[in-house]
């Protein structure tokens, strides 16, 4: 089944900061040592995508659940909350 998560994220409101709150600590680990690459599957917003030579991080659509922080087997994600007032903004919740 293929679902476009972009259509879902389109429903949400975001106050996007210029700077990312998510950073890959060592991109080499992603392409080298990380066999499973769970960040590509578990993220409910599909923030992490596999490009040809790297993993891209589309932090703008992050729903701030925390899953990639503890789900990355190499603890390779430097994870912060977006700055106060930035990030996702629920209308209903």
């Amino acid at each position: 089944m293929s679902v476009k998560v972009e259509d879902k994220l389109f429903l949400d409101r975001f106050n996007v900061d210029e700077e990312s709150h998510l950073r890959l600590i060592d991109p080499e680990i992603c392409m080298g040592r990380c066999q499973e690459q769970p960040c590509l599957y578990i993220c409910p917003a599909n923030v992490y995508k596999r490009e040809s030579e790297r993993i891209s991080v589309n932090y703008e659509g992050c729903l701030e659940c925390g899953s990639c922080r503890i789900g990355c087997p190499h603890f390779n994600i430097d994870w912060r909350f977006p700055r106060g007032g930035y990030g996702v903004r629920h209308k209903f919740g």
Binding site: L9, L11, D12, P44, L63, C65, S67, F92, G93
Partner: peptide, 9 residues
């Protein structure tokens, strides 16, 4: 009509 999509632990 889908209105919002959210995630939480």
């Amino acid at each position: 009509k889908p209105l919002e999509y959210l995630a939480h632990w």
